[in-house]
Amino acid sequence: MSKIVIDIRKKTYPARHGSGEHVAIKNLRIELGAGEFVCLVGPSGCGKTTLLNLIAGLDRQFEGVIGTGAGVAPRIAYMFQNPRLLPWRTVRENIDLALPDSQYGGDVDHLLDVMGLAESQGQYPERLSLGMSRRVALVRAFAIQPTLLLMDEPFVSLDAPTARRVRQLLIRVWQERPHTVLFVTHDLREAITLADRLLFLSAPPTSLLHEVTVDIPRPAREDEAVVEAFRNRLITGHPEISELL
């Protein structure tokens, strides 16, 4: 594993009738250390999803480079805002389909167990609750053993207890098998709970506004008061951040 460099000089959307050319991202450079958990924080509509789509290779229309120093393309897993499961395939089939041929089977059973989905693997996704579908999407992302995991506000619109539980599961599996995570959120508390490092993004054209290392030891982050205190210090120290959120 090596670090991943994302250097986007310019990403524009062509002019559509009614509006001119829209510059979504400009001069954004991010370095992700190997095995690092990084949270991107920014206002909604600040081009976070655009950025993830660029990294995932879904959109190749941009100026800049994304890559590892070693020249080996990272194996990327992408957890979208909505679970995006194939409704006509069972939970298990959805996960198995994402696996590269060389890696069939693998530790899917273990992951299903950890996420509490072992019983539901024969079900079709439409019969699952949103929380369960999110967990399936998470298992799918982990199962391919990515070197880079992209997550786009994956826990939005989950109720608070479920979101907390899934967040804990995420950290648990990430610690079992460390890999680089780029996690997008607009919830600062969530970001502080999860990340090694926070990156604050500006409104479009998106660029890097500020960078903060979260130095709270992981076990201490279970305590909401600690997270809250860190957040308050951050906001009083950097008033420009509170304007973003």
Binding site: L58, I76, A77, F80, R84, I144
Partner: peptide, 12 residues
């Protein structure tokens, strides 16, 4: 489109 993107992201 969402599912097509998913398939692309996971190198189907």
């Amino acid at each position: 489109r969402d599912l097509l993107e998913m398939a692309l992201a996971y190198r189907f």
